[in-house]
Simulated assay, not measured.
Amino acid sequence: MSRPVLAIDPGREKCGIAVLAADGTVIEQEILPTQYFVAMIGGLLREYEPTVIMGNGTTSAAAKARVEELGYEVTLVDEYRTTDAAKSAYWEAHPPRGWRRFVPRGMLVPPVPVDDFAAVILAERFLREQ
């Protein structure tokens, strides 16, 4: 049986984190402050013993090095257009209400960061390629 996937969408201020089962089921997803994310993912690494992947964009080299210092191999994956896909996923999970439901979703801006949804997208892409 395959291992779960821990996906990290690194950024300067915050990182999106998602843990997906091998079948693509989202187990956990959250947004963590970048300065604390390595300390905060320690429990996830111990609990799930996942395959660790990370988007190859903003600050990925530094974030990858920090995770590898914990003794985990990190696979970089292409994060092309994950933010757009994450916005769509946000609106699927939280459909617009009121007048916003009449605005095309592509024109709406989510009221919260979507880095956690971007991490889910990265993990889903990785699992599809496996």
Rank of each mutant, 00 (worst) to 15 (best):
V114M: 05
I53T: 07
P4R: 00
E73C: 00
L70F: 09
F102M: 11
G98H: 05
V112Q: 14
V112I: 12
L32K: 10
G16R: 07
P110A: 11
T75D: 03
P104I: 13
E69L: 13
A93N: 12
T51Y: 04
F37R: 07
A18L: 06
A18C: 02
P10Y: 05
P110N: 11
Y90L: 08
K14Q: 10
E129F: 06
P95V: 05
N56Q: 03
A18E: 03
M54K: 04
V74G: 03
V103E: 14
D23M: 00
G16H: 02
E47I: 04
E30T: 14
D116L: 00
W91V: 08
T34A: 10
F102L: 15
P50G: 11
G106D: 12
V19Y: 01
L45N: 09
V5Y: 04
M1I: 05
E79F: 06
G71A: 11
G55M: 09
P33L: 08
L32V: 11
V19I: 15
T51W: 03
E28V: 13
P96Y: 09
P110Y: 05
R101Y: 00
V109Q: 15
R97S: 11
Q29C: 06
T59F: 09
D84I: 10
R81H: 13
I121D: 15
P10N: 10
R12E: 14
D9W: 03
A18V: 04
D84F: 02
R66I: 00
A63W: 04
I8R: 10
T83N: 05
I121E: 15
E129H: 12
R97H: 02
F37C: 08
T58N: 14
M107C: 07
I31R: 08
A65P: 02
S88R: 12
I17C: 05
V112S: 06
T51H: 09
T51R: 13
V109H: 10
G98M: 06
E79P: 06
T25D: 03
Q35M: 01
E92R: 15
G71I: 13
V38W: 01
Y90E: 08
D9N: 14
A89W: 00
V19C: 04
V26E: 08
I53W: 07
R66Q: 15
S60T: 09
G71F: 13
D116H: 13
F37Q: 03
